[in-house]
């Protein structure tokens, strides 16, 4: 199970990177990055999974005493929370920049923004 999720995550990352590196339209690049970020998050979540165990919540099903034997690794879940939020923040920022860039040059082609070079 973990292997499937991890492999999917890696494939998503590769697809995302491919999209980001080959599409010239900025909005498509941003979407591709979102895909890649999702892939990364999938991989992170997949790391913590242990076969036959359940969520790290202490309630009727899992009491505090038997937690260590019953739950999966909670740390990657905490990490992925942070990672998702950071990804959202960066995406929002990139979208705002895209708007401003379009406002200036009326194009979404990344190859047109090369005034700074060499």
């Amino acid at each position: 199970m973990a292997y499937i999720a991890m492999a999917t995550g890696f494939i998503l990352i590769l697809i995302g990177l491919f999209g980001a590196l080959t599409n010239r339209n900025i909005l498509r690049m941003i979407v591709a990055f979102t895909v890649a970020d999702t892939g990364v998050n999938m991989v992170i979540v997949a790391i913590g999974y242990m076969h036959g165990r359940t969520a790290p919540i202490l309630d009727v099903a899992v009491s505090a005493a038997e937690a260590a034997a019953r739950i999966i690794d909670p740390v990657p879940q905490a990490l992925v929370l942070t990672a998702i939020v950071i990804g959202v923040g960066v995406t929002a920022l990139m979208l705002a920049y895209t708007y401003k860039l379009y406002e200036k040059k009326r194009t979404l082609d990344i190859a047109q923004f090369t005034e700074l070079k060499w």
């Binding site: 890649a36 960066v90 990139m94 200036k104």
Partner: peptide, 19 residues
């Protein structure tokens, strides 16, 4: 005015780095 595109290029690369 070109700072905007510089910032954007930076964001692109930092996305890849953070992956």
């Amino acid at each position: 005015e070109r700072a905007l595109s510089a910032g954007f290029k930076y964001l692109i690369v930092s996305q890849v780095i953070s992956i």
